[in-house]
Amino acid sequence: MQIQLKQLCLQYDCEGRKSDVLQDIDLQIGRGEFIGIMGRTGCGKTSLVQLMAGLLTPTSGQVLIDGEDINSRHYDKTILRGKLGYVFQYPEYQLFETTVYRDVAFALKYSKLSKKEVEARVRQALEDMGFDFAAIREESPLALSGGEKRRVAIAGVLAAQPEILILDEPIAGLDPQARDAFLKLLKKLHAQGTTILMISHNADALADCAHRLIVINDGKKALDGTVEEVFSHEEVLSQMHLDVSFASRMSKKLALPHSVTYEAFVQNLKAKLGGDAQ
């Protein structure tokens, strides 16, 4: 197991009152998994992944990464920073350098890479995020549109080539083309062995790339299974404010075999209508 959460609880202090944000979360995440995390606004998704990344300390319970308790006094957090990449929900806040190049290169500052290697990584990450490297490198990050800023911020995390990639609503704000290109990139990274956890409200995107879905509701783990399994509980999800993917919803309404991705749905529909026509 690469990431293990044991009886994890988190409370926030709110004007003296304690509120339970996460309760008794037990979770095991294997190396190389691609996990989607869903849940209504405010249910605790961001808090959950911040705990995994060591950005928050649990009220009780443990977070183990590669078997080590990251909140133990003896744990060296620089190890974590080396293997885990974290894209914030509003990553554009993390942009502070004077040029896009320097911003993306920032994560590599303390690496032992040569200048040339750094440049190659920065170029790759920016091109992966759909930018023309020469055109964007000297831009000020502040002079970019909302979606462009987000893509630069993601490039900054990708450049470090983390083993574990945690993404908090990374596709909100990306245009459809940028979004699809990004999902493709995530699939490639996953195929190369990266462990990926992605929070998203976009059921279609999760169906497209995640293998396992974890649904958080009211601070607890509500559902955990393959995308097919989780999306077969359409009613339950809808009570939790969530939608299944277009394909899942439509295949049910049309009494087609259950599919969660758009491509599979269209195939099934073609077979049905093509067959009917003959």
């Binding site: 849940g39 209504r40 606004t41 929900q89 909302g146 609503e169 909100a172 704000g173 409200h201 059921a203 404010h241 969530l242 939608d243």
Partner: peptide, 12 residues
Amino acid sequence: DEATAMLDPMCR
């Protein structure tokens, strides 16, 4: 201006 970008489907 993308005011619903971060909302869950129901809130949206």
